[in-house]
Nucleic acid binder design. Structure first.
Lengths: 302, 302
DNA sequence: GCGCTCCATACGCCTAGAGATATCAGACCG
DNA sequence: CGGTCTGATATCTCTAGGCGTATGGAGCGC
């Protein structure tokens, strides 16, 4: 790519003159006087090294060389004008691409409304939605694979990343409907001490896992985990088979399964937080826009 | 098409920096110092209205807006550079299109060599070859349908057009081989007075037609034209059938037909000229080149 | 902590070129 | 033959911007 030889203003003048084929009219369209236009064309011809127009008074015509240059000049000008507009649209956040990672359970709660609101406000923005658990989201944020993470129980030791709580919800006990506690409206946590547990593996979201274990510990027992499952959907399915019980964020009530009962637990204080995460140094306006959308869309509801 | 806002040098700097992602190296590739490059990018960003790069020392990256602008800028630059090269090629006559009209009879004589030589010298030039008689060539030259005409007996009353003789050749008598004059090596023109004639219609080339009639008149008779044919090829075929005789430029000897004899005529002085014609005000370099090729290729041979 | 790398800032210089006004020259027309 | 239209020339002004040198300041590695 060598140094550009043809100034754009001259090319612009060239294109307009090629359309008007009349120095006076072209100059008027350019908003300048006629002599400067003659100069522009002349300079351009000097640089090209050949005449671009034949001028017989009243009879301005493109030369073969001019005809050859015209489409290239036109393309270059429209490319630049379009590219500039596109860059501005992206820069101002009216267009572009935003990559979002989200925990599967959120697909049942805040995610649909959020996406709908955002798409409505920024129809030009393409959203890449990736379902992924907490730990991969953190990693993906770090290596710029996603721009926004929606996850549970954000880790506290992350530099470079910022977290903001979107939603705080209590835990519920997940019981097979045949379970002897399913008849109660609420369950004392300690009553689950003897039931086998189905949980997510610690790996997919250590903080949430630790919090659940901590709840049980605080209630005076260590849960007997007989089975791991990567998704809450699967956990519920396993509970339905009678394999065991579980503790889960309240929003998974949306998973409706015939043989599964969700029951409030006592004590009721423990809550799990859903947070939005992004890179602290990410100045992508779309990130800002999405954060704003979250604020207005789900104003810290419980 | 509105006024271009982004100066090309800045776009060039932008593209190079986007490739190098390093101010120092990019500046070196541009052949300038580093501070000016910083300024260029800064000015460009000011005009766009958004940052195009994120600069952490040692870690220069394109922003989304920058990524959006980059392909447009690259296209514009290559378009201009290619377009300029193409325009220069056309302007200097190394490329382009040349439209040539020629009389059918010339396809047997000067045309093949001429085209071969020209194509060899200017392989980038596309030649449009149209077979047409004299009068249509004149018209086509006037309304810019062809750029070069190769025709017989140029009219003398044409302004705006220039003619240069390429070839001058004598006339020959075209006789059926059964004709009683076919036994002679040469034919006195007056001996044809009683034979019916086959000729081209006057319309397709008035000067040549008038010259043939004039020859007969000078020999003391008015030819009895019993049949017209638009092509010499056809004239010869008709002569072969014994329909009549004809007078034709010597180069049609190349049309070899069993039943046709070509004989030198006396007096031997009358010659027909083949000329190249072009528009006087046509500055297309290809026209000049073709004229030069004709000069060197057929140096006024008889 | 020191130096190195890398980019930004701050002047200052200078040219290209974009613009205007005034004027000239050729073609065409009544 | 003069008026009009069209484009070219001449001359001047002004400024945007391209480039340089000198310097500042933030990370990063040893």
């Amino acid at each position: 790519m060598e140094r550009p030889e043809l100034p754009l203003p001259q090319l612009h003048a060239f294109v307009v003159l090629a359309e008007e084929l009349h120095f006076g009219h072209a100059a008027a369209r350019l908003g300048i006087a006629q002599p400067p236009l003659s100069q522009q064309i002349r300079r351009l011809e000097d640089k090209v090294g050949h005449a671009l127009f034949t001028r017989a008074p009243g009879r301005v015509t493109l030369t073969p060389a001019g005809s050859e240059l015209l489409p290239a000049a036109r393309r270059a000008l429209t490319d630049l004008s379009d590219g500039l507009a596109a860059a501005r649209a992206v820069g101002s956040g009216r267009a572009g691409r935003l990559r979002i990672g989200f925990a599967a359970s959120l697909a049942l709660t805040i995610l649909p409304g959020l996406l709908r609101t955002f798409r409505h406000q920024f129809p030009g923005v393409h959203l890449d939605i990736h379902e992924m658990t907490t730990a991969p989201q953190i990693a993906a944020l770090h290596d710029q694979t996603i721009d926004i993470g929606l996850l549970r129980e954000p880790p506290t030791d992350e530099t470079e990343l910022v977290f903001r709580t979107v939603l705080s919800e209590p835990f519920v006990a997940v019981l097979p409907s045949t379970h002897h506690l399913a008849g109660q409206r609420a369950v004392q946590l300690s009553q689950l001490a003897d039931s086998p547990f189905v949980l997510l593996p610690r790996m997919v979201g250590p903080p949430l896992h630790d919090q659940i274990i901590g709840l049980c510990t605080a209630a005076g027992f260590t849960p007997q985990v007989v089975q791991h499952a990567v998704e809450w959907q699967t956990v519920c399915a396993l509970v339905e088979t009678g394999l065991g019980v579980s503790l889960a964020p309240a929003s998974i009530r949306r998973i409706r399964l015939k043989g599964v009962a969700f029951r409030r637990i006592e004590p009721h204080t423990a809550r799990t937080r859903v947070a939005v995460a992004w890179r602290e140094n990410d100045h992508n306006p779309l990130v800002t826009h999405l954060l704003a959308t979250i604020s207005q869309d789900s104003p810290d509801r419980t």
